[in-house]
């Protein structure tokens, strides 16, 4: 299902004190697509994602999931937040965290159980359902968060800088995990990150935002072959080229393109 951002802008405050974080922006994340959204801090990339998630209301414009306007968190859409310790519920076991995500979909007991098992297996946490988040490392907790997003079998998954808080090694594992489950669950992904390598490595398409006010600076297609590989892909000349392109757009937006 397409996610359509149609001339959306977002301001905080009112009147003279209003601060526009995102100015009239349009964007379509097509079905099954993996779109990275990058940009310098303050470009409104997280704001844009939260509006797509139905957790923030646009000041003007409209967001649609398929043909339906998004006015609140829509069914079939899941979010993975940056801070897993504040998005997972630490007082619940891993299994309980996942079944809580299923309460809205009114499934039978058996269906719930099999979905939970499947999601845990997909993120490599089979048999860890009785653990509590506080008994796990940060990387494992973010796996739980991903499993919780997948357990509803969403058509769209929004990820807001999901690996910002984990170490490099875990980060690489989690990146590959997301690329794998994306196919397994046939899910459309919008992925906000401030890591330029990551944005290139993961995506089919990169949307680069500029700041003050936030707006789309570039929309680049990533023509790297799949499946991606942490070593091979990053050695690819096209990777290096895209990487420096995005880097220039994000870090030195005033310099004209050299190519």
């Amino acid at each position: 299902m397409n996610v359509v951002v149609d001339r959306v802008s977002k301001s905080y405050g009112r009147g003279a004190e209003a601060r526009e974080v995102l100015t009239e922006t349009s964007l379509t994340v097509r079905s099954q697509e993996f779109v990275s959204i990058v940009g310098p801090s303050g470009c409104g990339k997280s704001t844009l994602l939260m509006m797509m998630a139905g957790l923030l209301r646009p000041t003007s414009g409209e967001i649609r999931l398929g043909d339906e306007p998004v006015t609140g968190p829509p069914a079939g859409l899941s979010v993975v937040f940056q801070d897993y310790s504040r998005s997972l519920f630490p007082w619940m076991s891993v299994r309980r965290n996942l079944t809580t995500a299923l309460t809205a979909s009114r499934l039978g007991k058996e269906e719930q159980r099999s979905r939970v098992e499947h999601a845990l297996e997909s993120v490599g946490l089979a048999g860890k359902g009785e653990m509590y988040p506080w008994q796990m490392s940060g990387g494992m907790q973010q796996r739980v968060a991903i499993a919780r997003a997948l357990v509803t079998e969403p058509t769209v998954m929004l990820m807001d800088e999901p690996f910002a808080a984990v170490d490099a090694q875990t980060r690489a594992d989690l990146e590959d995990l997301v690329l794998r489950v994306r196919h397994e669950y046939d899910v459309t992904v919008a992925f906000v990150t401030h890591d330029i390598d990551e944005s290139v490595y993961m995506a089919d398409r990169i949307v680069v935002l500029a700041a003050n006010p936030g707006r789309i600076a570039a929309d680049l297609t990533v023509d790297l072959p799949r499946p991606r590989d942490q070593v091979e892909t990053k050695l690819d000349a096209r990777f290096a080229k895209l990487r420096s392109e995005v880097f220039r757009l994000v870090m030195r937006p005033d310099t004209p393109a050299t190519t």
Partner: peptide
């Protein structure tokens, strides 16, 4: 926010 996005009853 997390609970809201999970659309829990």
């Amino acid at each position: 926010r997390s609970a809201r996005s999970l659309r829990v009853p």
